[in-house]
C-alpha cells in the first residue's frame, strides 16, 4: 500500500501540470512530456536530461539511445543507491511498460550529457532525439532550468 499512497500525490501533480501546458511529443503510443535539463557552468562538467515517457499501447517498449547536438557523448544512466552508497551505472535501456510510464527524473534514470559543445543557459532549450526499441525516433525540445531547479520550468517557477 505504501508505494501507491506515496506515489499518489506525485501522479496528481504530474497530471495537473501537463494539463497546464508543458509541451508534449508523440511517437506511436508513446507520449513524452516534462523534458528538462539544468544549466551548466561552462562545458567541462556533464549536463543532465530528464523527461517523462508514457506508453498508452499494449506492448512494452524501451528507450535505447539518446542523441543531441549539444553533447558529443550522451548516455543513459541510472542512479542506484545500494547499502547507502550512490553509484551511477550505465543503463543499457530504460523500459517503458505497456500502459505505464517511466520518468527520467532526479535520483533515477537520467541522460548524462558528456562532452558538451556549449554551456547550457537557463531559459534556453536544445533538441534531443530519443530512440525507442519499437516506436522509433522522436526529437523533443529540452527546456533548460536553473542549476538549482528541481523540475522543469513549465511546472515550477524554475527558481
Amino acid at each position: 500500500m505504501r508505494p501507491i499512497t506515496l506515489a499518489l500525490p506525485f501522479i496528481l501533480v504530474a497530471g495537473a501540470a501537463s494539463a497546464e501546458g508543458c509541451p508534449s511529443w508523440q511517437i506511436g503510443d508513446l507520449t513524452i512530456t516534462n523534458a528538462w535539463s539544468r544549466a551548466t557552468i561552462g562545458t567541462n562538467r556533464p549536463a543532465v536530461f530528464y523527461a517523462e515517457i508514457a506508453n498508452a499501447g499494449s506492448e512494452d517498449d524501451a528507450l535505447v539511445t539518446i542523441s543531441t547536438p549539444v553533447a558529443e557523448m550522451p548516455m543513459l544512466h541510472e542512479t542506484v543507491v545500494r547499502d547507502g552508497v550512490a553509484s551511477m551505472p550505465h543503463a543499457m535501456s530504460v523500459p517503458v511498460p505497456a500502459g505505464g510510464s517511466v520518468g527520467l527524473a532526479p535520483g533515477g534514470f537520467h541522460g548524462m550529457l558528456m562532452g558538451l559543445n556549449a554551456a547550457l543557459a537557463q531559459g534556453e532549450s536544445f533538441p534531443m532525439t530519443m530512440t525507442f526499441e519499437k516506436a522509433g525516433e522522436v526529437t523533443v525540445e529540452v527546456g533548460i532550468s536553473a542549476m538549482n531547479a528541481r523540475g522543469p520550468e513549465c511546472l515550477t517557477d524554475g527558481s
Binding site: 539544468r38 562538467r45 556533464p46 549536463a47 543532465v48 544512466h77 542512479t79 550512490a86 551511477m88 532526479p106 535520483g107 537520467h110 548524462m112 550529457l113 542549476m147 538549482n148 531547479a149 528541481r150
Partner: peptide, 17 residues
C-alpha cells in the same frame, strides 16, 4: 563531486531550498 550530473545537483538544490 561537481562532475556528478544527478545526485549532487539534486541534493544541493534541496539545500538551497
Amino acid at each position: 563531486f561537481t562532475n556528478c550530473p544527478d545526485v549532487c545537483p539534486t541534493t544541493l538544490s534541496e539545500v538551497a531550498e
